Amino acid sequence: MTSFFSPPKDGNQNKITAAEVTSVYHNVQHGLSYRSGDCTTKLAPVIFPDSEIAKKLACGRTKSASIVTGVLAPASLETCLKQLNTPMIADRPDSLPHFSIASDASNHGTTKLFPLALRYYTPDLGVQNKLLDFYDDCNENSDAIFNQVVSRLERNLGLERISAYSADNASVNYGVHNSVYKKLTDKNASVIKANCVAHILHNCGRYAGDKLRIDIENIVTKVCNHFSSSAKRVQELKEVFEFVDEEYTALYKNVPTRWLSLWPAVKRLHDSWPAVKSYFLSLGEERCPSALWKLLANCEDGEDVPCELQAYLLFLQNSLKVFFDAVLKVEGDETTVCELFELMTNLKLKLEQRKND
């Protein structure tokens, strides 16, 4: 190989390699495509014409992918395994860190992907979140998930130190008789069931919302869809904002698969209510969406008493904030199981207090 690819005479080969690997790591860290990295290496010598290292960078898409799969991924796994196989107490070889595992399925086109994540604690590093493996499997039954998880753990760490299994609350994961959790406890009886608390909180808020007379999710979606594909309607709304002497703010859209999107959408609609109400009333019954007109028909300008929809927006802006804060805390990278009991207890107390009030 050296007869074809001779090293640079200036001895900067290691620095060039380090620059290329660092550039690829930066792209991975920020979720950028290999194509953007290909462009960056061509741009570097233009921005830094006096740098000999920048002139020698050559890291296209193929090379970037090879660096990720052949260098960065193995190095990340090696670091993770080294931490998990280092005793937390120097003179106690048996004081190895325990770890929890988490897995879930997601569809990428026709491919079903499964990440296998680890979470553990060390006195020096604190709480660590690592990705042990990322594989694809067309099967999503409990046997397939269990066999995949066990084969990867036995290859690297074993099953004795698993402290908990975390996944969504589907029966395939936590069913009583034939689930991934049941199969794991047959191998290690100490594994704790770590249900997805975010699922529970989200479902609780949604179930309670379904009991209201007004479907607020549908209302938010109707309002946003009305403006989403029409620049003319947005301009008319801006004029209404100016007329009511308020600063224009774009309305947020609720995304059902994103649990933290409903409260900001409701809050923004409530804050913009005078302008939004005036706009839809100005359309009249013929041009206004019927679902909105039925709720806005009794909202006449100048009334001192808020209409029913405005009252619901005010109520939900206050109530959903409790769930929003709780889910936001649960989804944090640093939240531990030790904090969940206090978090859920406080949430229950807040809801009970509001109910009594």
Rank of each mutant, 00 (worst) to 15 (best):
residue 131 L to Q: 09
residue 300 E to F: 02
residue 277 K to I: 00
residue 307 C to P: 03
residue 72 L to A: 07
residue 257 T to S: 14
residue 119 R to A: 01
residue 57 L to Y: 01
residue 98 H to N: 12
residue 94 D to T: 11
residue 355 K to D: 08
residue 310 Q to P: 01
residue 8 P to Y: 04
residue 100 S to V: 04
residue 229 S to F: 08
residue 311 A to S: 06
residue 321 K to H: 13
residue 357 D to C: 05
residue 3 S to V: 08
residue 113 L to S: 00
residue 82 K to A: 15
residue 303 E to L: 06
residue 343 L to A: 15
residue 45 P to G: 11
residue 140 E to D: 12
residue 112 K to F: 00
residue 163 S to F: 14
residue 80 C to Y: 05
residue 201 L to W: 02
residue 319 S to L: 12
residue 16 I to A: 02
residue 192 I to N: 06
residue 350 K to T: 12
residue 94 D to Y: 11
residue 282 S to W: 09
residue 13 Q to A: 10
residue 242 E to L: 07
residue 283 L to T: 09
residue 77 L to F: 03
residue 47 I to S: 10
residue 38 D to V: 06
residue 165 Y to R: 06
residue 187 K to S: 11
residue 73 A to V: 14
residue 154 E to F: 05
residue 246 E to M: 15
residue 23 S to L: 15
residue 196 C to D: 03
residue 6 S to N: 15
residue 132 L to Q: 01
residue 258 R to Q: 12
residue 189 A to W: 05
residue 77 L to M: 13
residue 194 A to M: 02
residue 247 E to D: 12
residue 286 E to R: 07
residue 154 E to V: 07
residue 357 D to F: 00
residue 13 Q to W: 04
residue 340 L to D: 02
residue 179 S to Y: 01
residue 93 P to T: 13
residue 89 I to S: 07
residue 200 I to D: 06
residue 155 R to A: 14
residue 290 S to Q: 14
residue 348 K to Q: 10
residue 91 D to F: 04
residue 250 A to H: 06
residue 249 T to L: 12
residue 182 K to C: 03
residue 99 F to T: 03
residue 59 C to T: 12
residue 197 V to S: 03
residue 144 A to T: 10
residue 332 G to T: 00
residue 336 T to E: 11
residue 339 E to V: 04
residue 111 T to H: 08
residue 282 S to E: 08
residue 343 L to S: 15
residue 342 E to C: 11
residue 119 R to K: 13
residue 354 R to G: 05
residue 287 R to Y: 09
residue 337 V to M: 11
residue 176 V to F: 00
residue 22 T to C: 14
residue 356 N to D: 00
residue 189 A to S: 11
residue 30 H to F: 13
residue 309 L to V: 03
residue 113 L to G: 01
residue 341 F to V: 07
residue 239 E to C: 11
residue 306 P to A: 04
residue 232 K to H: 09
residue 199 H to F: 00
residue 243 F to S: 14
residue 323 F to P: 02
residue 83 Q to D: 15
residue 112 K to D: 09
residue 134 F to M: 12
residue 178 N to S: 12
residue 156 N to D: 15
residue 141 N to M: 15
residue 350 K to N: 13
residue 239 E to R: 15
residue 48 F to Q: 10
residue 214 I to W: 01
residue 280 F to G: 02
residue 111 T to Y: 06
residue 284 G to Q: 09
residue 43 L to T: 14
residue 229 S to P: 01
residue 33 S to C: 07
residue 128 Q to A: 05
residue 241 F to T: 03
residue 26 H to K: 09
residue 131 L to G: 08
residue 241 F to I: 03
residue 240 V to Y: 01
residue 325 D to G: 04
residue 190 S to H: 15
residue 322 V to S: 12
residue 107 N to G: 10
residue 280 F to C: 06
residue 10 D to H: 09
residue 271 D to C: 09
residue 236 E to F: 06
residue 188 N to I: 10
residue 7 P to C: 09
residue 91 D to T: 13
residue 243 F to G: 07
residue 140 E to I: 14
residue 52 E to N: 08
residue 52 E to H: 07
residue 272 S to R: 02
residue 200 I to S: 10
residue 300 E to C: 08
residue 289 P to K: 06
residue 217 E to H: 05
residue 178 N to Q: 11
